[in-house]
């Protein structure tokens, strides 16, 4: 089912999203990928303050290509989410409610999604040109030295993504695999 969702994504909103829903996201979301996750995680371990507030935050695992003049951003599709699995449960325990990426997640991430009433969405991998059209503004808000891996605050409009992990513990990839197994046996 199609769902029009405005940020911030509260735990109630996350709970209302189910595997297979097509979400069109409008509002503000952060970007962070490998290097920014590592740095934030180390800050948490040292007891230091984070540069962004994680409460009800959506983090898009994405490092854009450079913006041409007059445009907010370059190509902007999702990166593989599993590389963030080491860090994501901690951030969800601190209030993050939504992750956007692509690909499978670890058991620890599954459990953290359920425990925290969060949600994992997949954007279409390799559709960076199309997705850039849904981003109307982009501003680096932390870790500028990381270049494409810096933390950005994006303003998005009808950004399309599909619910892959929901807070009831369902997994769209697993369900697709099981469906294929059933068909092959039939």
């Amino acid at each position: 089912m199609d769902r029009i969702i405005h940020t911030p994504i509260t735990k109630e909103i996350a709970d209302s999203l189910h595997v297979g829903d097509m979400v069109y996201l409008t509002g503000q979301i952060y970007t962070a990928r490998d290097a920014a996750h590592k740095r934030m995680f180390e800050a948490v371990q040292k007891g230091e303050a984070l540069p962004i507030d994680l409460k009800d935050a959506t983090i898009y695992y994405m490092g854009p290509s450079p913006a041409r003049e007059g445009r907010p951003i370059g190509s902007a599709g999702p990166t593989t989410a599993s590389r963030m699995d080491k860090y994501a449960p901690t951030f969800m325990d601190m209030g993050q409610t939504c992750m956007i990426g692509k690909g499978k997640r670890s058991d620890a991430v599954h459990e953290a999604v359920v425990r925290n009433h969060a949600v994992y969405l997949a954007a279409i991998g390799g559709a960076g040109a199309l997705l850039s059209k849904c981003i109307t503004a982009s501003e680096v808000v932390a870790y500028d030295d990381l270049g494409t891996e810096a933390i950005r605050l994006l303003t998005v409009e009808n950004f399309p993504a599909i619910v892959v992990l929901d807070s009831t513990g369902r997994d769209a990839y697993l369900e697709a695999e099981e469906e294929a197994k059933k068909q092959n046996q039939a």
Binding site: G74, S75, G77, T79, I124, A127, G128, A129
Partner: peptide, 24 residues
């Protein structure tokens, strides 16, 4: 539906000069 998005993506990359994928 995903194919539609991927085909649209290729069209946008071509006409609007945006790399097909951000991972160049």
């Amino acid at each position: 539906k995903i194919f539609d998005q991927l085909c649209e993506n290729l069209k946008i990359a071509d006409t609007d000069t945006i790399p097909i994928c951000q991972d160049t």
